[in-house]
Design a protein around this nucleic acid. Structure first.
Lengths: 333, 333
DNA sequence: CGTTGTTTTGCAACCGATTGCAAAAACGTC
DNA sequence: GACGTTTTTGCAATCGGTTGCAAAACAACG
């Protein structure tokens, strides 16, 4: 009923330019057949009226909205601000628009999915290391192109994934610690049920040995890292160096060590994962494995574009290597 | 021409339920007239087919999309992760969808505006203390409901604003420092041209006196705070306590002080603004003015809903008081 | 049972675009 | 100037819903 605001429509531009509506539409459709003359007249008319084509209307007939659902449940970990920053700018550069979804108890997977379907998004990016693979699969079952970033890697995935290989990251961490001369290694993971935790643990213990002490932070958060390290301290036999499942967890762990009178890296060494900006602050100065965020994001979007072209394309798992950033929470023994 | 995916449409539901398309539409339109019988049949048919109404199509005729542009240029400051978290959940709870816009050099104000118009958003939230008022005004001139959060406050604003009163925040800060016995006060603001910086400075100097030393961090970021404090140190006459325009700036300033061999709060006191989670970490423990984020977000959305009802409603400036959180970067002298 | 008043229903037009198709215009060639 | 090609154009149907309007169904009442 109501016209959308008092927006200028195709029709008005057509009238002003003295051409048919199709001509106007074609002027704004790359690759359509319009003569130089009409194109110029249409463009002038559009310019004069301040015409903005309606994505809703064109989406209705073309079936594309250029909307991408950006779904995450990590709105507490500062690393994800960098993730959102990188994703939104990259999507914008590809002429796509992020429709942000914050998964909570109230707004669960089902609601998220039906909402994204209602908006006819062209694709979905799941950005989370804690969501299970089924979450992403649900979208692809519904016929939506989806790429899961920071997900667990399988050799024959049934949904596209991009990220680092957590198992080999754990492996690398243990080797690095041993290489520095640490003898007693310890592992402080994120949430126990998160795929990233399990995989990093697997890789780490493979090298460090299965008797190596293991603790979990309930959450990828400072407090959780703090209390996980306190458990480690209370356990009596504290390790020489810990591999922590996340930088924020590591920062919490460091605070707990210092609160107990121990120094880092003097008494105990720490290494994290993610390589978020904060870790580089002089007052933190955390040695960590950086996620190659820009590469990951680019790969996600490239893959998403491919899936939009060919939805039947078989899922792939794209891996990048984490980059060791040596700072000041580890010392040669 | 392609149908949108292979989505179930109104028509198919109507056929299956043996009613007209209008009946189906009315079943899903709150307040429309449908008999109990048809409603049930329609609901069953919809359920069986897994029908999801298309927001695009309905938006086209109703003129509402439930899409809200969430625009910001602060994707580096961890405080804004909390801002996005709170905004997205609150919008979701009001059955609105955040279309996230990351303002950059590439994606400037003009592009953002025309893009949001193309998507016929129902409203816009500008979340930034550094964007000028004209940015928000441009939307309201284009007929879009807009509320600017964390904006400068004017008594007769020409666009809706919600946030803390920066002038009185500066005032409060100075009084608090004097009350603790600090004699030589200093001010380290954010970007010099940001309204928040200027207002906090005004309030602060009003109490601290205009001879009080003033420095600016080029950015609301750690490094900027670090080097601003270094300038203060190099200037020769270092103050007893500094009011910093942002927590991250304060954290950077603290690092610079410590790097120069000074202790906080032993030698120099610091107080920040924002009250972000990080500031509460034991290893940071920063005294700060907390922004009442939940209140701000609720007020923004409430106001936005009002504007969507009545776009002619006269703009208001809603203020909240910052809350002093006393931690460990200030000590009684 | 007829009359009047209230709900419920379907028809058809519309929201603002896109696009297949056929007619019209422009172009080339002899 | 006639004729065959290619390009440009407009018509009209379509995308998936909403809604004013008038007809149909139902309810209430004397």
């Amino acid at each position: 009923m109501q016209s959308l605001k008092n927006r200028i429509t195709l029709k008005e531009v057509a009238e002003r330019a003295g051409v048919s509506r199709s001509a106007v539409s074609r002027t704004f459709t790359p690759g359509a057949s319009v003569s130089k003359g009409t194109r110029e007249r249409v463009e002038r008319a559009a310019e004069e009226l301040g015409y903005q084509p309606s994505v809703l209307a064109s989406g209705l007939s073309t079936g594309r909205t250029k909307l991408i659902g950006l779904v995450s449940n990590n709105f507490r970990n500062p690393f994800y601000l960098e993730v959102f920053d990188t994703f939104t700018t990259a999507l914008q550069n590809s002429d796509l628009r992020p429709l942000l979804v914050n998964l909570t108890e109230d707004f669960d997977a089902d609601r998220a999915q039906s909402m994204l379907q209602q908006y006819s998004v062209d694709g979905v990016v799941v950005a989370s290391s804690t969501l299970p693979p089924q979450f992403a699969t649900a979208f692809s079952n519904a016929g939506l192109p989806v790429v899961h970033a920071f997900a667990r890697h399988l050799d024959n995935p049934n949904v596209d994934t991009v990220g680092i290989d957590d198992v080999s990251c754990g492996d690398l961490a243990a080797r690095h610690l041993l290489g520095l001369g640490y003898k007693q290694l310890g592992f402080i993971g994120g949430p126990q049920k998160a795929a990233s935790t399990m995989d990093r643990q697997t890789g780490f213990l493979r090298v460090a040995g299965s008797e190596c002490p293991v603790f979990y932070a309930e959450d990828y958060a400072f407090d959780a890292g703090f209390s996980a390290m306190n458990h480690a301290i209370e356990s009596g036999k504290i390790a020489d160096a810990y591999f922590c499942g996340d930088d924020v967890v590591a920062i919490g762990a460091k605070a707990a060590l210092e609160a107990s009178g121990r120094s880092v890296p003097g008494d105990v060494g720490l290494i994290g994962v993610n390589g978020m900006t904060i870790s580089g602050w002089q007052s933190v100065d955390l040695t960590t494995f950086r996620q190659p965020l820009a590469c990951i994001v680019d790969a996600v979007i490239e893959r998403l574009l491919e899936l939009m072209e060919d939805p039947a394309s078989t899922p792939r798992a794209i891996r990048f290597d984490p980059e060791l950033i040596e700072r000041n929470t580890l010392a040669r023994r």
